[in-house]
């Protein structure tokens, strides 16, 4: 069991093709993309608790922009939007969804250099919206 998603031809395992062209070779401080990380859930875990813990551990270079309860993959989730300043020079976006599904805690992350976010956010969010719990 786990989560699965559709790349919608927006993201690729490696940054090649149209997505790489959208990012622009050499542009930005970090690689734009989408990631899905899961670890076994503990009893009592829920999206709100996972989010509270993560947001209370933000470092001084992070800026919380938005927090929103939502639903993802058919289960309750919490979406957060954080800007991270890298070395005082560049700024990176981390839009994340936390949820508990299929016995695991999941963190879904869409990320890009802030200067590329206007081009990439819609595509990355569309990929996130395809997440489904896999039996």
């Amino acid at each position: 069991m786990g989560l699965r998603f559709d790349t919608l031809d927006v993201v690729e395992p490696e940054p090649v093709g149209d997505f790489y062209a959208a990012i622009g070779a050499g542009r930005g401080a970090s690689r734009a993309g989408f990631s899905l990380a899961g670890v076994p859930a503990e009893p009592g875990d829920d999206a709100y608790g996972l989010t509270d813990r993560a947001m209370s551990a933000l470092d001084a270079d992070a800026l919380l922009i938005d927090v929103e309860p939502c639903e993802l993959a058919g289960v309750p989730a919490v979406r957060t939007l954080v800007l991270e300043q890298l070395g005082g020079l560049a700024t990176v976006v981390l839009e994340q969804w936390r949820l508990v599904a299929a016995g695991e805690r999941w963190v879904v992350t869409a990320t890009a250099d802030l200067a590329a976010w206007a081009q990439l956010a819609a595509g990355l969010r569309a990929v996130v919206a395809t997440l489904e719990v896999e039996a």
């Binding site: 800026l63 300043q85 005082g88 560049a90 700024t91 802030l114 200067a115």
Partner: peptide, 9 residues
């Protein structure tokens, strides 16, 4: 001086 994303930040 700042990067484009640094300015937006």
């Amino acid at each position: 001086g700042c990067t484009p994303s640094g300015l937006l930040g």
